[in-house]
Amino acid sequence: MTPLYYAISAILVAWHWMFVNILQMDSAGGATWVLSIIGLTLTVRAALIPLFVKQIKSSRNMQLIQPKVKELQKKYGHDRERLAQETMKLYRESGTNPFASCLPILIQMPIFLALFRLLDHHAAKSSGIAFLTDELARSFGEAKLFGTIPITASFLHSGGVLAVQVLAAVLVVAMTATTFTTQRQLMSKNMPPDALSGPYAQQQKLLLYVLPVVFAVGGIAFPIGVLFYWTTSNLWTMGQQFYVIRNNPAPGTAAAKAKEDRDREKALKHGTVVETVVEEPEPERRPQQRQQPKKQSREKRKKTSGPQPAPKPKPEGGTHD
């Protein structure tokens, strides 16, 4: 964890220096250190944007190949080994990494633990580490929000201060709600209907309900400062995902249809597209053809017409009485 201590403490101390020297905030104030934690969160999340883009692409590919995955399950459902081989082959051909969706949270966990350690151990005991000197660690550990809430306290270790438990409970609820909303937003708006019934959908549903419970249970033991970090990170994720779903949704989803409607309305509003009603042409009326008589044989024609009268002989000159 030593390299992480240096990285986290450098960013944290840099934000603290900026708030104290540029904005003239109290060096030992709780608001100064909370804002420094929020600045640390924003810096970390900005650095993770490339991984988030990779996560979005991987999640989209996972959604789009779900029909093919179902076909493989029907074809090789009796052979688990062959099914796994063919599924991995499909992932490689489509450029999909099923574990890419977990990269941002997996990388954040060590950072989260490093910050937890800085607050819970070094700041609480005024023991500096890396760029967090003993003096800064003492200031960090003694900082209080609103003059009564130590940012190193937690719901379980509130020191008998009711305000600590109230603020911790509010932050835990906010952290849980933002986690649930982010996952729910992904499933309801940016997943095609075919992807809502496969194994990938089951995985997403599991995360939808399990992650908030994990954060809610674990959150009561987190220091106030760590709760600010995680809640801010969740808000960033929710906003970032909302932007991506709104502007670059997966094909065949509710978000894609909503974007098409918005683009059409925008085009009509700016006059770039003229909406016209195309009337269907009436069917062409062809002149009725005269019905041709049926062909008849010579004998049948004779029977129909009857015996013809013999022609009268021409007189050979003069007139006869």
Rank of each mutant, 00 (worst) to 15 (best):
S59C: 10
E93C: 02
L207Y: 12
K269E: 15
F112S: 07
A137W: 01
A31Q: 10
F215L: 13
F19Y: 14
S305F: 10
A255S: 11
K314V: 13
A177M: 09
T231M: 10
Q202G: 15
E260P: 00
A114W: 04
R290T: 11
S158Y: 05
L227K: 02
V13L: 08
R301T: 12
P281R: 03
F19L: 15
P313M: 00
R45T: 08
A250Y: 03
L162T: 15
P223M: 05
A46Y: 11
L4T: 08
Q292N: 08
P311Q: 11
S233D: 07
V34C: 02
S233W: 03
M175E: 09
A195T: 01
A216F: 14
L106F: 13
L208E: 05
F140R: 01
K144D: 04
K205H: 06
R80N: 06
D26H: 11
S188C: 04
G218F: 10
A114T: 15
L106Y: 03
P193R: 15
L171M: 12
V172R: 01
P223D: 08
T178C: 04
R45Q: 09
I129D: 06
A216C: 14
F99C: 07
R286Y: 14
G318I: 03
A84S: 13
A267P: 09
P3R: 04
L208D: 02
I105C: 02
K294L: 13
G159L: 00
V53M: 12
A195D: 00
G39H: 07
R82W: 05
K266S: 11
A221I: 05
A250D: 09
K295E: 15
V217N: 00
W33L: 00
P50E: 10
W15R: 07
V172E: 02
M191H: 00
G95F: 08
A267I: 06
R262P: 03
R184A: 11
T176V: 09
M88R: 08
R262D: 14
L208R: 09
L90P: 02
Q24L: 09
P281M: 04
A163N: 13
K295P: 10
S197A: 12
K302M: 09
Q291W: 05
V69M: 13
K74H: 13
T96W: 06
P50R: 12
F99V: 14
N247E: 12
M62D: 05
T43A: 15
M88W: 04
T178G: 00
I38H: 05
S27Q: 12
A28T: 14
M109Q: 08
L136T: 05
L35A: 08
M25N: 06
L156M: 13
M25S: 09
T152A: 03
L83I: 01
R45K: 12
I49V: 15
E316A: 13
D120F: 10
N97D: 15
T32V: 02
